[in-house]
Design a protein around this nucleic acid. Structure first.
Length: 586
RNA sequence: GCGGCCGUAGUCUAGCUUGGUUAGGACGUCAGCCUGCCACGCUGAGGACCCGGGUUCAAAUCCCGGCGGCCGCACCA
């Protein structure tokens, strides 16, 4: 943490954001409520631009889908997903001093239970354990009331007078999983495919107070990528196999070290540091995405989550972290290997088939050997144990059983002696055309609001005592400003012509004629307008204007009618600033 | 949620200890003048004491409660 919070970037950016209209705390007229923000005109545009860039990076190029589902969902969805069980913490309140404690933490501290165990306890069991061990308030020695759960999902009821519980979704992912069958049909029943959802999610955080970094209502970007676990290869991996990833591995962390290892994608996969190709691919893409938002590679890392830190649905998880002035390493995306967990759960809870059919190349003819217990023999002999024997027979390998019975004349099964006459061994020909399986899922998940903050922080520069937001040109909320050098002699009229022409071209343009030209440049720099187009006396003579670069403050000159084509190319990175015209000496 | 600190125009802030000020400044905004390329200057305008209660002749100032913020602790799937 920096020694001075007074002037850290978070403070500077929050102040600027409020003043110039990027974002501010919501409901200020009613005192505000922590964890909610309002995006102002510039912030809303910036966020939209960043999300569009995500679409370009992660959706468009791969033919993935984007969908939009509801924020409120019926209770069943989150019972199935495991959130109702996992998205809550047991709490107890001291009856005397009203202090609240995490019940599981008390048991860990005063009863010496490991966290693995306390996590499984029911409220009743916690209550009993607290009473038995006579655990009292560590602060005042008072007794505790009944333990209760604090659910971090927002709860509501659906419909009037209804008992139907609904929850605000804590992630957009479930909106994709519950629609999986249709989405799979829409992908023409082919794997792999990816589905994205960008939308609000709700988490009733206990105490959010980090601006855009921790919100109760926020925008989540979930990409659920479905693939066949038997065919996990990613065709794009060869394009990025020499890209590097900076990893802080779980095994390193267990040694209490923060040492970062840097591997090529190829190496991470060969060494098994990342379990699935696609996960590595999305991680590289995430790295490049952050670079394109202005975060250099050395300010990024991927930290592998430890077993007890992982979400209940993941078997391997990496958090992509970016270094921030105020908070140090901060998560901007999570990359979880969710396996078939979610679809399996929804299949179980809904009774719907979530498996997909995979045809084999040729139908396979199989001879199936089936063991059929003969109850009329087994019953009288094993009596009370008969059911156990039948149960065991259903699990036994028919081939081995048959082989033993013919060779030795009996088979010892869990201590029971099975004779040939107890069973009938049936042979059947089965033709298999394919098989059913549940796809696996790799999920990259971004916090849109954090991306906005990170983009702001990395764009923040001070030049000659002035603030300049050096946004990447394709996310800047306003693309260019149009300025008459002075507000007389027909310059404003000419400038407005240029202004309307560029608006008509689809650009986000601002017209400004108030104050000196330097003041207008400064104002524009502060909100990150990449280009300034100035109409001067020469414009009236030869139809040329100057174009000023926000970052270098250099100027070039070119004809007005050249602007549309040049500027379209410039904002798509097809041209650099110097190529926009003849350099101007100032 | 606990503890400490705090809450004054759009933003940053002075004033609060010791009650009585037209509540001061800076930046920004708007209007006019000025302005020939990097926040020039001038004139003017608009704009604030978090909410509620109490003490008092009188409260931005003191007391109580609420709400909110910052910092620390806890929480962070």
């Amino acid at each position: 943490m920096p020694p001075s919070r007074k002037q850290d970037k978070f403070t500077l950016i929050s102040e600027l954001a409020k003043r110039r209209g990027f974002f501010w705390p919501s409901f200020e007229i009613y005192g505000g409520v922590g964890g909610f923000v309002t995006y102002g005109p510039l912030g809303a545009l910036l966020k939209k631009r960043i999300e569009d860039k995500f679409r370009d990076f992660f959706i468009r190029k791969f033919g993935f889908f984007e969908i939009e589902s509801s924020v409120i969902m019926p209770g069943k969805v989150f019972e199935a997903s495991g959130h109702v069980d996992h998205f809550k913490e047991p709490m107890v309140e001291c009856l005397k001093c009203k202090r609240k404690f995490r019940a599981d933490h008390l048991l860990e501290e005063f009863s010496g239970m490991p966290s693995m165990e306390t996590e499984k306890l029911s409220l009743q069991e916690i209550k009993t354990k607290i009473k038995k061990d006579d655990i009292r308030c560590p602060d005042c020695g008072g007794e505790f009331g009944a333990p209760r759960h604090f659910l971090t999902m927002f709860t509501t009821t659906i419909g009037p007078y209804s008992d139907a519980v609904g929850y605000g979704r804590p992630e957009a992912a479930q909106g994709i999983f519950v629609e999986f069958k249709r989405l799979h049909e829409l992908s023409r029943e082919r794997l792999p495919f990816g589905v994205v959802q960008i939308g609000h999610a709700l988490r009733n955080e206990i105490s959010p107070r980090q601006g855009l970094i921790r919100l109760r209502e926020f925008t989540i970007i979930d990409l659920e990528f479905f693939f066949d676990p038997e065919n996990p290869d990613c065709p794009y991996i060869k394009d990025v196999e020499n890209e590097t990833l900076r990893l802080l591995l779980a095994e390193t962390r267990l040694r209490n070290s923060e040492e970062i290892v840097e591997f090529t994608v190829k190496e991470t996969l060969e060494n098994g540091y990342i379990k699935v190709d696609w996960q590595a691919f999305f991680m590289v893409l995430a790295k490049k995405f952050m670079v394109s938002l202005g975060v250099p590679p050395e300010k990024q890392r991927f930290i592998e989550k430890l077993d007890w830190e992982k979400a209940h649905y993941a078997i391997q998880s990496f958090d992509q972290e970016v270094y921030l002035d105020r908070w140090g390493w901060t998560e901007v995306s999570g990359h979880a290997y969710r396996t078939d967990y979610d679809l399996k759960q929804h299949m179980k809870f809904s009774g719907e088939e979530m498996r997909i059919f995979k045809p084999t190349e040729k139908p396979v003819e199989k001879e199936a050997i089936q063991v059929k217990p003969i109850r009329s023999k087994i019953g009288p002999i094993f009596k009370n144990d008969a059911e156990k024997v039948i149960e065991a027979l259903s699990k036994v390998d028919a081939k081995i059983l048959e082989e033993r019975l013919t060779r030795k004349g009996f088979y010892m099964l869990e201590g029971f002696k099975i004779l040939p006459e107890y069973v009938e061994i049936k042979r059947q020909k089965i033709v298999e055309h394919g098989k059913r399986f549940i796809p696996h899922v790799v999920e990259p998940s971004f916090g849109s609001d954090r991306l906005v903050y990170v983009t702001l922080e990395y764009a923040y520069r001070v030049k000659k005592n002035r603030v300049v937001l050096s946004f990447p040109r394709d996310v800047a909320p306003i693309q260019m400003g149009i300025y008459p050098l002075v507000s007389r002699d027909g310059l404003p009229e000419k400038a407005k012509e240029v202004y309307y022409m560029l608006l008509d071209e689809g650009f986000y343009v601002e017209y400004d004629e108030s104050g000196s030209i330097g003041r207008r440049y400064a104002r524009a720099d502060e909100i990150g307008v990449p280009l300034g187009i100035t109409i001067d006396y020469q414009t009236l003579e030869d139809g040329t204007v100057t174009i000023r670069d926000r970052d270098s403050w250099k100027q070039v000159r070119n004809k007005v009618q050249m602007l549309p084509e040049l500027l379209h190319k410039y904002f798509r990175y097809k041209l650099e600033f110097e190529e926009l015209g003849e350099p101007v000496k100032t």
